[in-house]
């Protein structure tokens, strides 16, 4: 992981990518008030995987984020384990994430906490699909605005089959998932 303030390898790649994109803007700080940024609507996303492969950056500026109030802290986590995993443990053969970006931490029986290592995550949405199908849908994708180079036309938006991408005000640059009204509270 690059230390804040230092230009790390990833920053270099990002800068190089920005230079290579017509209209790309090299900027990781907050956008000017009134400007618009690209963001994807997690309710629209159908987890096609293109967020990982179609961003101008490699790895993608799209990352998995986790809404802990929605999470069930499940032992049999659909976002962490392969569908047919023989065991519910941290063995690599059981992990769903292709780049091992999710950490499973035991809390108390039978609860486990799942955290995303953003540096490793490539935004493939595999865990998002598993969590949505078999869990509470607490894992979802967002364009990380500190990574995004703000292309005039987002390359993923052009490829997204679900039309999940939109321009939103930079002051509210994320479309976050929260616990649905009336749903039972988690502790």
């Amino acid at each position: 992981m690059s230390v804040k303030g230092q230009i790390g390898r990833r920053d270099f790649i990002r800068a190089a990518a920005a230079l290579g994109i017509g209209g790309g803007i090299w900027k990781t700080a907050a956008r000017e008030p009134g400007s618009m940024v690209w963001q994807l609507d997690p309710q629209q996303c159908v987890q096609c995987g293109r967020c990982a492969t179609h961003c101008v950056l490699n790895p993608s500026a799209v990352k998995c984020v986790h809404s802990y109030p929605i999470c069930g802290y499940c032992d049999l986590c659909g976002g962490y384990l392969q569908p047919g995993a023989k065991k519910r443990d941290t063995g690599a053969e059981n992990e769903l994430c292709p780049v091992s970006a999710i950490t499973r931490t035991f809390i108390e029986p039978p609860f486990f906490q799942y955290t995303i290592d953003e540096d490793l995550c490539v935004g493939c949405a595999k865990c998002v699909k598993g969590c949505g199908l078999f869990g509470n849908g607490s894992l979802y994708l967002q364009i990380k605005q500190d990574l995004c180079v703000h292309c005039n036309e987002c390359a993923i938006a052009r490829a997204c089959p679900a039309e999940a991408f939109q321009r939103i005000p930079a002051e509210q640059a994320y479309l976050l998932k929260t616990r649905p009204e009336g749903g039972p509270a988690q502790t």
Binding site: T53, H54, P83, P98, V122
Partner: peptide
């Protein structure tokens, strides 16, 4: 034509067998 590759198999969540 969009020449970028589609997501590889490792990025797909496969449950069809179930």
């Amino acid at each position: 034509k969009d020449w970028r590759r589609d997501p590889p198999q490792s990025f797909r969540y496969e449950v069809a067998q179930y």
